[in-house]
């Protein structure tokens, strides 16, 4: 009898805490959508007002998120291409599919690793920086200062950050894909003497328009997620500098989780 009561109590506790957590998740996702909607709506409601200032913010963000990340993306992309080709050359001939390395490279890089790894790099570099920057602005009353100047903080800070993050993510992902293929060519030219035209022929034969479009779609979605989540957590800081690293950590962790889940979701949707 006592064990039954205990089990019932534990079951109720579990259901209640799950219900509370799922409620919190729904509210969180709703608030992220609201921030995204508000930022896009500000493009219409504010018209040209603030366009010049917001453009400046977007340019700085593209420089930071896109241009300054090129070196890191280059190194990682090149090594990923190398790893994939080494593994393909090592194992695939054993099972009689040695000619399929181009297909493997395209499948792994364009469809999966290109968008996902680029997203992880952008989350680590820019997502954390955006959340920290906006959190600090909130604590030092800079956001309030914008408001009393009649400046919409969403229009001035969030909208250009989202646009810049999407542009940077798309460019970086395409750049990642190209550099990975280059890495693959470099290692394969060391192993077997293969002209670049032949190598590219293998790759292009394996590549479809759908692969490119899905890579693009993923990078656009990841760009939105990284920027909206970072801005949301940055602007969620209330009164203390102590909250800034806490919110930054949440922004990074939640962005990673969402990027991985959505990556899997899109793959399931288009490739199964």
């Amino acid at each position: 009898m006592e064990s039954k009561t205990l089990i019932r109590f534990l079951f109720r506790f579990l259901v209640r805490s799950l219900w509370r957590r799922s409620n919190g998740l729904v509210v969180y996702i709703y608030e992220l959508f609201s921030l995204f909607y508000e930022s896009m709506r500000s493009l219409v409601t504010e018209g040209e007002r603030g366009g010049r200032s917001a453009f400046g913010v977007a340019v700085i963000q593209i420089l930071f998120t896109g241009v300054e990340a090129l070196l890191m993306v280059s190194v990682i992309a090149l090594l990923i291409g190398v790893i994939i080709i080494i593994q393909s050359f090592t194992h695939m001939p054993r099972v009689g599919v040695g000619d399929y390395f181009g297909k493997v490279l395209v499948m792994v890089v364009f469809r999966e690793l290109g968008p996902l790894l680029t997203a992880l790099i952008v989350i680590g570099r820019s997502g954390s920086a955006i959340a920290t920057y906006q959190g600090n602005m909130k604590v030092s009353q800079e956001i309030e200062a914008l408001e009393v100047m009649g400046i919409n903080p969403v229009r001035y800070l969030v909208t250009p950050t989202i646009i810049a993050a999407v542009i940077s993510m798309v460019c970086l992902t395409m750049y990642f894909n190209i550099i990975s293929i280059l890495g693959g060519y470099l290692i394969s030219s060391l192993k077997i003497e293969m002209p670049i035209t032949v190598f590219l022929q293998f790759v292009l034969n394996a590549l479809t328009v759908t692969d490119i479009l899905i890579s693009l779609l993923k990078s656009i979605i990841f760009g939105i997620i990284v920027s909206v989540v970072a801005c949301y957590h940055g602007l969620s800081v209330k009164i203390s500098f102590q909250e800034v690293p806490q919110q930054t950590l949440r922004a990074v962790m939640n962005s990673i989780i969402m990027a991985v889940i959505l990556n899997s979701g899109i793959t399931l949707l288009f490739y199964i």
């Binding site: 600090n136 009353q141 309030e144 009393v148 100047m149």
Partner: peptide, 16 residues
């Protein structure tokens, strides 16, 4: 309305 309003914060709150 705030375009007709100036506000000086205690900590100045300049954009850093």
């Amino acid at each position: 309305l705030r375009l007709e309003l100036g506000y000086v914060f205690q900590n100045a709150a300049l954009i850093f």
